[in-house]
Amino acid sequence: MNASIELVNLRKAYGKFLAVNDLSLTVPAGTVFGLLGPNGAGKTTTIRMMMDIIAPDSGEVRFSSRPRTRADLERVGYLPEERGLYRKMTVFDHLVFLGELHGVARRASAPEITDWLDRVGLADAGKKKIEELSKGMQQKVQLIGTLLHDPEIVILDEPFSGLDPINQGLFKDVLAEYRRRGKTILFSTHVMEQAEKLCDALALISGGKVILSGGMQEIKNRYGGLAYRLVASGDLDGLAEVEGIESSGLHDGYARMLLSENTDPAELLRRLVEAYDVQEFRSDAPTLEEIFIAAVGEATAGEATGFQP
């Protein structure tokens, strides 16, 4: 898959504080890519360097396998973390202005704006000043401004923060639509559950460094995505000898198994049912949050501990 965005050895320091430390990552074209990490990890600084809001001390930002130019930003839609809106402008004028900055003339953007406002439930808000809108409504206006010029690449910095569940759903629907249309979407979040549900690929950042990156399933497999939990009566000590089980460990009332790479869980269950009185058999893959904690631990220890059944 072609790279849509590549960050090569980016570094940014503020005085003695190293916000981004030799960070490299690749965002494949046409994927939903999550930039994950706790607050202060360096996500926003990384995105700002990506968008040429701040210059890196060293390193390079590449779009479509060549150094980024200002013209590349014409095909990017960016939603900043701090919501930059012109509060005294009307919603309509604000959106027209953002469209014009991307070369979309008023007469072309006007029907688009009307459609978008209707879609996000702000059909009557076009003539209102932005300062008259609630915070959630302002975020919807900001999302429209991000997508109005139909960008090929959408970059969203903490898009869900401050949104109620209904509006989060709306944002997710819009992202899903853009994903179906083959657009590249990168968003940052510190909420792992959101990333787990939305992302095809991700990079985990901690202390300004990428500590883990890759496809979602690949990462899950790497960190025990092939783990299953078995509750059954009988002697479970010999589980590891069952075909298709790589290793197993006994816990309080259940056994945790790591399946071999090509094992079909349904086939394994059939074999287990023949050997044991199976009461429960389910995936016990770690959550992204658990993976993150493990990855931070590994990065700190400087070695890969891998999955421990």
């Binding site: 700002r48 200002r70 900043p80 930059g84 900055l101």
Partner: peptide
């Protein structure tokens, strides 16, 4: 107002 970063991110 926080809009300067938005402007810097535009193709300007």
């Amino acid at each position: 107002r926080g809009s300067w970063n938005l402007l810097l991110a535009q193709p300007l």
